[in-house]
């Protein structure tokens, strides 16, 4: 029944409320993403960006509201079940497995894939995006620089060959030149057809590459619109682009 009620959006989040124990982090978040879009979610620290991603990926189960992906209800899933449906999340702070090698970190992303050939192909593709990883295959993930870890975290997610890629503050703590590289790759991935949900505090760069954006404040979506519209919006300019 709920299946029928959902609309045709690729991902549709409706009125979700998520909690950490007693603390309510989301007070009814609504958003949707269509296939092929880059959508960005911006907001200041503690606004609920990460919690929104975690609710979609199943790391946090919303107490109220619904989430549909390709028409399927996913808000009751455990994280690995949602991941198997094709949603990959690159977590905030990268969360590389520090004592696994770069190669193993990537292989974890392909855990569900049985076909060795397919795994090798994906590995090659990932190394195409991030040639740096190729030189470091046998190094423990924890010994890499911040930028390299971000690339590894993205590469690991790409090993899942996701339909929807969610990135949580990929530019955090990185030098501008690395940030540029990361954003270039996000654009490239999108050009090749990948749907992307990008969470950023770095609003300017995020809005530049996004088709649409949402602004979240203390657990509520307060604004939504085209990337270019939000960029010129008075509130956004004052709060996030200053």
């Amino acid at each position: 029944m709920t299946e029928m009620a959902s609309t045709n959006h690729f991902l549709e989040v409706k009125q979700i409320e998520s909690f950490y124990g007693q603390i309510q982090a989301l007070n009814g978040v609504d958003l949707y993403i269509d296939k092929g879009e880059i959508v960005t979610l911006i907001g200041s620290n503690g606004a609920g960006k990460s919690t929104t991603l975690k609710s979609i990926s199943g790391q946090v189960q919303p107490k109220k509201g619904t989430i549909h992906f390709e028409g399927k209800e996913i808000h009751k899933n455990q994280a690995h079940q949602t991941a198997l449906l094709g949603i990959a999340q690159v977590p905030e702070g990268r969360r590389i497995f520090p004592r696994l090698t770069v190669r193993e970190n990537l292989l974890v992303g392909a855990f569900a894939v049985k076909d060795k050939k397919a795994i090798a192909d994906r590995m090659e593709r990932v190394c195409g995006y991030f040639p740096r990883l190729k030189e470091r295959m046998d190094q423990p993930g924890g010994t890499m620089s911040g930028g390299e870890q971000q690339m590894l975290a993205m590469g690991r997610a790409l090993m899942m060959k996701p339909k929807l890629l969610m990135l949580d503050e990929p530019s955090m703590g990185l030098a501008p030149i690395i940030v540029q590289q990361i954003f270039d790759i996000i654009k490239e991935l999108n050009k090749e057809g990948m749907t992307i949900l990008l969470v950023e505090q770095n609003a300017y760069q995020a809005l530049q590459i996004a088709n649409r954006g949402y602004v979240i404040q203390t657990g509520n979506i307060v604004l939504e619109g085209k990337g270019s519209e939000l960029m010129t919006n008075q509130l956004v300019r004052e709060a996030y682009l200053a």
Binding site: A83, A88, F97, V108, F111, A112
Partner: peptide
Amino acid sequence: MAMRAVAQDRETASLMT
């Protein structure tokens, strides 16, 4: 490998299927 991944970061391992 999955065991080591879960030991190092359970939440992230679950994001990786």
